[in-house]
């Protein structure tokens, strides 16, 4: 399929994108460091461990981010939580992307089938999806793969609608007509002409979906669903620390909250940068 005889230079664009959007570059760097640290770095304390002798310590030289009510080291736990939280968010996003793009393509073809698909989508989106996801995960007995499914449940319709609207407007465009006039097969039109032109906007949506998934996972574990203790997750740490906020022990919920905010910010910045680049190559 990709027997490209000629290709435009691409590497320069990527470098320029990161230079023009230092926020996105910083964000990508932050996520990478966080993820690698959670997977490989030696943590100062056992993230699952408890220490009855060192409960509710404030941040300092010994415990950089302080400790929680059970004496767990917040720094180790915040970093380690990225392992589960980010992996689940990324897995959920990939599933949303793949299913959403395929269904979106199907929904944007001509014919009765695609119309039915869109009707079904309308009906489906009438459900409060977050609550549906919540029910699904707790009914499954807090299986982690159900969290991934739940994220897909919420995000697949978004990918579908996005792809459908993009493809429908692209199908009307002159260069698609030109490809048809040249004798290109439907398959070739999809892979050579449609997809490359929706890719940018799909990437933007992907980045936003990761950000959304992080929030969804945090919300679930805040409610005690999904990731179950003692495995640390940002949502459950925020819940644990919520009670301590009023008595001045802000760090338990604070650092976990900060991790969520920074991750979401990073992915939003990345989405911005990709969106900007996509808009520019069009003209």
């Amino acid at each position: 399929m990709h027997d490209d005889v000629f290709a435009p230079r691409r590497g320069v664009q990527m470098r320029r994108m990161l230079r023009q959007h230092p926020g996105a570059a910083l964000g990508v760097l932050f996520i990478l460091v966080l993820l690698l640290a959670s997977l490989f770095a030696p943590l100062p304390y056992d993230p699952m461990g408890i220490d009855g002798g060192a409960t509710l310590r404030s941040p300092g030289g010994e415990h950089w981010f302080g400790t929680d009510g059970a004496g767990g080291d917040i720094f180790s736990r915040v970093i380690y939580a990225a392992r589960v939280d980010l992996s689940l968010a990324l897995a959920g996003t990939v599933l949303s992307l793949v299913v959403g793009v395929l269904l979106g393509l199907a929904a944007s073809s001509k014919g009765k089938g695609s119309e039915r698909l869109v009707r079904g989508l309308d009906a489906f989106q009438a459900f409060p999806l977050l609550i549906l996801a919540l029910a699904l995960v707790s009914l499954s007995g807090n299986k982690l793969y159900m969290v991934v499914v739940a994220i897909a449940l919420i995000n697949v319709p978004r990918f579908m609608r996005l792809l459908r609207s993009e493809v429908l407007s692209l199908r009307e465009s002159r260069f698609i007509e030109a490809a048809t006039a040249t004798g290109a097969s439907p398959r070739r039109i999809i892979f050579r002409h449609l997809l490359p032109n929706v890719w940018g906007i799909v990437l933007v949506q992907t980045s936003l979906t990761v950000a959304n998934a992080i929030v969804v996972i945090a919300s679930l574990s805040f409610l005690g669903i999904g990731v179950s203790p003692p495995t640390p997750s940002w949502g459950s740490m925020i819940r644990d620390g919520a009670g301590n906020m009023s008595s001045g022990e802000w760090w338990i919920a604070g650092f976990a909250g900060l991790a969520v905010v920074l991750c979401v910010l990073a992915f939003n910045q990345l989405a911005d940068a990709i969106g900007d680049r996509t808009a520019r190559t069009y003209r």
């Binding site: 490209d4 000629f6 002159r174 007509e177 030109a178 490809a179 002409h193 032109n197 190559t281």
Partner: peptide
């Protein structure tokens, strides 16, 4: 312009 795929090289 509209008749050319904006993401394909001229040669392609």
């Amino acid at each position: 312009f509209e008749s050319l795929n904006p993401r394909m090289a001229i040669g392609a």
